[in-house]
């Protein structure tokens, strides 16, 4: 299971990195989304993998998953949403101001829309 999660984190990061390096805004935003999946998963995994033991206190529970990374990731998810929203709006604004969606603000080639 650990191997699966590690590889998943790597795949998400690699795909995210590749997309973040693209020249148009929308793929960059998608790349950031994939990256934040990878990062959230990584942070979550630092609490190690525990099955069937949620951190809800009860007398019968045999043990608990580490609640701290979960709390961190919970806010990270919400903040990632805020960031994604902000970046996508920035790209809309850039499109309106500059007339194209190239990340450097100038279209190298003609747009095919």
């Amino acid at each position: 299971m650990e191997a699966l999660i590690s590889i998943l984190i790597g795949v998400l990061t690699a795909c995210g990195v590749y997309l973040v390096l693209r020249a148009r805004t929308f793929p960059v935003v998608m790349g950031l989304t994939l990256l934040s999946y990878g990062v959230n998963l990584f942070l979550f995994a630092t609490g190690r993998l525990t099955i069937g033991q949620p951190a809800v206190i009860s007398a019968q529970a045999p043990g608990y998953a580490d609640p701290l990374p979960q709390a961190l990731v919970l806010t990270a998810i919400v903040i990632s949403f805020a960031m994604t929203a902000f970046v996508i709006m920035l790209s809309l604004k850039a499109r309106a101001e500059l007339g194209n969606d190239h990340v450097d603000g100038h279209a190298d080639e003609e747009e095919h829309s």
């Binding site: 191997a3 590889i7 984190i9 790597g10 795909c15 990878g38």
Partner: peptide, 18 residues
């Protein structure tokens, strides 16, 4: 770059998880 980043994070995650 993507491959290096992916491999790096995989190795890091594996190192932590094990």
């Amino acid at each position: 770059l993507a491959a290096i980043a992916g491999l790096g994070t995989t190795a890091l995650a594996w190192g932590i998880l094990t």
